[in-house]
Amino acid sequence: MSETSSIHVVCPKCDAVNRIPGERKGSGQCGKCGAELFSGQPITLTDQNFARQIGRNDLPVLVDFWATWCGPCQMMAPVFEQLAGRQKTKLRVGKLETEQAPQTAARFGIRSIPTLILFRGGQEVARTSGAMPLQALESWLQQQGVR
């Protein structure tokens, strides 16, 4: 992407689509609600906002399909938060609680958790299951072309 091209970034709070000039990539506030667009925090995904967050972001989106009762999911949570902070200008990081969003979990055939799915342009491009340390997760993302 050239410095003059723009990208579309969906607000993590209100789901509004924002156009960010290339030279400002990694900074900015939502034009609708004023929230920070690159907060470095995982986005909460639901059945209602999933399609917009996945399909309208020009950044790749990594989704953690998890459940509150899942021990490995709880172990993975701090790793996922660290990843969100470290990769905030390159990658959107979202969490979808499978029991709160059963339609989306079923749509993607989630059978084990945690399951991580990487999306680009609204399409699934890679998937892995199980908890992993931050270094292994970043290595997996690099193998998928997220740099």
Score class of each variant (00 low, 15 high):
129 S>F: 09
21 P>M: 08
144 Q>D: 00
59 L>F: 01
19 R>W: 01
108 F>T: 03
140 W>Y: 12
132 M>N: 00
115 T>K: 08
93 V>S: 03
1 M>G: 15
9 V>F: 07
66 W>Y: 15
19 R>I: 04
130 G>K: 10
76 M>I: 06
89 T>S: 10
12 P>Q: 09
119 F>G: 03
25 K>R: 15
127 R>L: 08
109 G>S: 12
83 L>N: 05
76 M>C: 03
115 T>N: 08
125 V>P: 09
96 L>Q: 06
89 T>W: 01
146 V>L: 01
24 R>N: 08
12 P>M: 00
104 T>D: 09
12 P>R: 00
92 R>Y: 01
142 Q>R: 15
46 T>Y: 07
100 Q>M: 13
81 E>S: 07
8 H>R: 15
49 N>S: 08
147 R>S: 08
100 Q>T: 07
52 R>P: 01
78 P>A: 02
10 V>P: 05
5 S>E: 14
82 Q>C: 06
107 R>L: 11
65 F>V: 11
69 W>L: 04
71 G>W: 02
23 E>C: 01
87 Q>I: 06
132 M>G: 04
137 L>N: 06
135 Q>D: 15
70 C>L: 13
17 V>R: 05
111 R>T: 13
146 V>H: 04
56 R>T: 07
104 T>V: 15
73 C>T: 09
2 S>M: 06
70 C>E: 03
103 Q>D: 14
108 F>K: 04
8 H>D: 01
21 P>K: 06
89 T>P: 03
114 P>G: 12
43 I>H: 00
24 R>A: 10
44 T>N: 09
130 G>L: 14
4 T>H: 04
113 I>A: 03
138 E>H: 01
10 V>S: 01
101 A>P: 13
59 L>C: 03
115 T>Y: 07
116 L>Q: 14
139 S>F: 11
131 A>C: 00
18 N>Q: 08
91 L>Y: 02
41 Q>K: 14
73 C>H: 01
87 Q>L: 15
83 L>Q: 08
118 L>K: 03
82 Q>A: 15
52 R>W: 00
82 Q>M: 14
125 V>I: 15
15 D>C: 10
120 R>L: 04
4 T>N: 03
102 P>M: 12
133 P>L: 07
74 Q>T: 09
32 K>S: 11
1 M>I: 10
141 L>F: 05
102 P>N: 13
112 S>G: 10
13 K>E: 07
19 R>H: 01
67 A>Y: 14
144 Q>N: 03
96 L>R: 11
55 G>A: 14
110 I>Y: 12
55 G>H: 11
125 V>Y: 07
37 L>Y: 09
109 G>Y: 10
